[in-house]
Amino acid sequence: MINQAEFCESLRGILVARIQEGKLVIPVLPDVVVRIEKELQDPNYDINNVATLLERDLVLAAQIIQTANSAAFARTQRVESIRKAVGLLGARSLRTLLLTTISRQIYSSRTPAINDALHTLWDHSLVVAVLSQDVAGLVESAAPDAAYLAGLLHDVGQAIVGIYLLEVERSAIDRRGAHRSDFINHEFWMSVVKEVYRPVSAALAEKWNLPTAVCDAIKACDDYDPGNRRSIGNVVRFSDAVAMQMGIGLVLLDESQVNALVMIGRSLLGLDEDVVTRISAQGKRIIDEARLSART
């Protein structure tokens, strides 16, 4: 009979080693996105070429139209076709839209319970992205776009590690006939995710060739850097804490730590409490609308 505690500890060791050696399987960007990214790097890119590339992947095209019309992206004119989306959005917005759509795909599972957890995680990532973008603009931090992407992907490692653990559990059950219900218990799952997710998030950002500012912010957003008050890392750390305070997402910290993070972040970033309250309320509305739209 397998010893669960021993198994979990060996699993933790293997996972940490794999991440350190860069051997954990990280989702890759679809080929079509890589090709579009190449097109967009040319300042005079051809809208038709980009649209044609996007139209080859029907599922992605449909998801992009859906995302383009979501509350977080809402434009003046409703986007009804890929060509219109490409025409309306500039290269920067199109890149952000593509990465939002692709990232969303990571947060899904065919197991309903896991799928629900991943949806919660996605909601958290999206609200942190929106808050980071808004806060970066408010505190005159560098590039709100970079802040958005860093916010969007700061916790993606949680989803990747979570899904990896699920697959390992499945495999262990199949091979050893272990009892299914709590083979990898919740506490272990949480402790492993908490320990290793950040380098996995950073690894994904690097693998996707995101700007250095985004990769650095993801690596640095575990705690504040008082020496660089308005850094994107600090903006994401603060937005992450505000989202947790709002009760959106997986809370890996206790309440006093979350409150401390919000208070420290407000002072470091020079934000008035009322401004933070208003920004949070707007972020909450966006997530509520996104949830409503997903249900309908």
Partner: peptide, 9 residues
């Protein structure tokens, strides 16, 4: 959309 949110705040 983000700009309006910031200015509103």
């Amino acid at each position: 959309a983000s700009l309006v949110r910031q200015l509103r705040a």
